[in-house]
């Protein structure tokens, strides 16, 4: 493990023996170095956070991976979108499993993000200097809901169509600009081809970019605010 090619890829030499080596594992890795080299023992206990933030993040990772795979089989058009769902079920190998993974992970993420918020609240972990990270968290909750909601339309079955109809009808009641917002969102006065494309772009590009950036900011702020409360 001390060979030149190994050392050219991984900056830390093996074996890992001392605490200095252990620090370097964290320090030398792009993926890990966002976390501190040492943590308070109390902060990593399960009973302290129930790992709910972590679980939300891993569910998001599952959603990204399965979402990209689903995109390979999906066309945001009528009736193709619906037929794609049928193909996933009957033609694509393990297609239904892929779709199930994405669907259930999405529901679980809504729950885990909400529970994470409750845990943070009851721990009082929004106290200064963590106020702004709480605000970022609220935005993350809203983005999670929006992602779930925009994804709900994509199978374009009866369930999707009417659920999104119910939701988008509420937007109408926003004073003055409600009707305009709804028009922009749906790409018309009723749900149709353009709605599907708009929700598709929001669901697969715009909202994931936003939420990824905000999660990065969220994690960075946890460290800058001095680790867990």
């Amino acid at each position: 493990m001390q060979s030149k090619p190994w050392r050219s890829v991984f900056r830390t030499a093996l074996p890992i023996k001392t605490n200095l080596d252990r620090s370097l594992v964290m320090f030398n890795s792009l993926a890990l170095h966002i976390q501190p080299v040492k943590v308070r023992e109390r902060a990593i206990r399960f009973s302290y956070t129930f790992y709910l933030g972590m679980i939300s993040f891993f569910l998001f990772m599952v959603l990204v991976v399965t979402g990209i795979l689903l995109m390979l089989y999906y066309q945001p058009a009528i009736p193709n979108a619906y037929e794609n769902m049928k193909d996933l079920q009957y033609v694509v190998s393990s297609g239904i499993f892929l779709r199930n993974l994405h669907r259930w992970a999405a529901h679980l993420m809504v729950i885990s993000v909400f529970l994470h918020m409750l845990r943070v609240f009851f721990a009082g972990a929004y106290r200064p200097p963590r106020e702004f990270n709480w605000v970022i968290g609220v935005l993350l909750l809203l983005l999670t809901l929006l992602l779930s909601y925009t994804g709900y339309l994509l199978p374009y079955d009866q369930l999707a169509y009417w659920a999104v109809t119910v939701g988008s009808n509420i937007v109408k009641y926003v004073p003055i600009i409600g009707k305009n917002i709804r028009f922009v969102l749906l790409g018309g006065n009723t749900i149709g081809e353009y709605t599907l494309v708009r929700f598709y772009v929001l669901h697969c590009v715009v909202l994931p970019l936003f939420i990824t950036s905000l999660i990065a900011l969220h994690f960075w702020r946890i460290r800058k605010d001095g680790g867990l409360y």
Binding site: F58, Y82, Q89, N100, H102, W104, Y156, D157, I191
Partner: peptide, 22 residues
Amino acid sequence: VVIVVALIALFFNAPLEELANP
């Protein structure tokens, strides 16, 4: 997380009704 989601996905299918009909 992956195991739990995979188990749920094995046993429960995501709902799919008929094609949307306005």
